[in-house]
Structures are given as C-alpha cells and as structure tokens.
C-alpha cells in the first residue's frame, strides 16, 4: 500500500515511518481485539482448548494467498517483484523450534507480546525484554552461530518450483489443508470441552 506513494515521492522515508507506525498500531489493535493480547488465550491452543490462533493465522494465509493469486492472474501484481525470504532449511527449522518453545514457555509471540505490553501486562513486558535480550545475544554471538545461520542455502524457493507442481494446484491444496484444519480444530475443541465438562461433573 505504501509502495506507490513512496515511489512517486508523495512522501519520503520519514513519512513512511509514520505510516508504518500507524499500520503497526492497527495491527496491534486487531491482535488485542481478537483476544491475542492475553497469554491465556494464546497458550490455550497448546492445551487444545481454544484453537483461535491457529484458525486466525490459517485464515490470514488463505486470504492473502488467494488475493495474491487472483491479483497476479489478472496481471495486476507481478509475483517476481514480491520479496521472498531465502530458504535456509536447517537454520529455519531450528529457528522455528526456538520460537515455538519460546511461545509455549512465555505465552506470547513477538507481535502479541508488544500488543500485550501496550495494555500494561507485566508478563508481556518481561517477555519483550527477553526478546530484545535474545536478539542482542544472537547479534553478539553471530560469529559463533554463523555456520548454522547460513547452512543449507536453497535460495528463494517456493513449493511449486521445488516440487515442480502447477502453481494453481498448490493454491487449491493449501485451501483444502486449511478447510480440513478448521474442521479438525472445531472437532478437537468440542472434544476437549466435553472432556472438561465431564471432569468438572466428576469433581
């Protein structure tokens, strides 16, 4: 959204920071309103009580994917201009596990921690401090972890390219995966609610 304004010099990089700030506030507001400013809500997905985070994230993925697919299909968006984070398989798996462990232990992920800090939650404040401490530690220890960080480079890879599948087929497969995931999540939630009710009745 910002790109054309920045490109045509309607506003400069300073103003774009203000716009980024406003977008960030909007994002934080959406997270908070969805209940994601509470560690209880976030970790309850790991106890399988409430899979809202999973559903929201997968909905966002499907919505963005379909939007990008159709916009590029009608020629409005050139996919080769979209920045792709290069794939480094091993370090990204390790990073994902570290982030996931932090999510389970701390009860937040980075964005939700900031949103929750803004509403005055002390646990999120501490989580945020840990986040920045970890970033600083990584930066200072970079020479030690550089080997891992740059291991298994695969360049800018996408699933259709890597498996040589038609782009549209992968889109459809992801949609099916999401719908299956939503149905499964609903089923699990019901099951856990029933179990909880039974446990309460027994007690």
């Amino acid at each position: 959204m910002m790109a054309p304004f920045l490109k045509y010099g309607v506003f400069g990089s300073e103003t774009s920071l203000v716009v980024a700030f406003l977008l960030g506030i909007g994002f934080g507001f959406a997270l908070e309103r969805a209940g994601f400013g509470s560690a209880r809500k976030l970790v309850s997905q790991f106890y399988l009580d409430d899979l809202a985070v999973f559903k929201v994230m997968f909905t966002a993925i499907v919505t963005a994917m379909l939007g990008v697919t159709y916009l590029s299909w009608i020629g409005f968006l050139n996919l080769s201009l979209v920045y792709l984070v290069p794939t480094n398989l091993l370090p990204q798996i390790v990073g994902g596990l570290v982030l996931g462990a932090g999510f389970v232990i701390g009860g937040y992920c980075p964005g939700t921690a900031l949103a929750a800090t803004a509403t005055g939650r002390v646990d999120a404040l501490i989580y945020g401090a840990g986040l920045y401490a970890g970033t600083l530690l990584f930066a200072e220890a970079y020479p030690l972890v550089k080997g891992l960080h740059t291991a298994t480079p695969m360049g800018q890879t996408t699933i259709p390219q890597y498996f040589n599948l038609p782009y549209g087929l992968v889109v459809f497969a992801v949609v099916l995966m999401a719908l299956g995931g939503f149905a499964g999540a609903g089923w699990v939630e019901k099951k856990m609610a029933a179990r909880k009710a039974a446990a309460q009745a027994a007690a």
Binding site: L66, V68, T69, Y70, S72, W73, G75, L77, N78, L79, S80, P166, Y167, G168, L169, V171, F172, V175
Partner: peptide, 9 residues
Amino acid sequence: AIAATPARG
C-alpha cells in the same frame, strides 16, 4: 485458482 497462471517475470 487451479487454472491460474500468475504473472511472473
């Protein structure tokens, strides 16, 4: 979208 051929390059 199965039939989609996104503009690329």
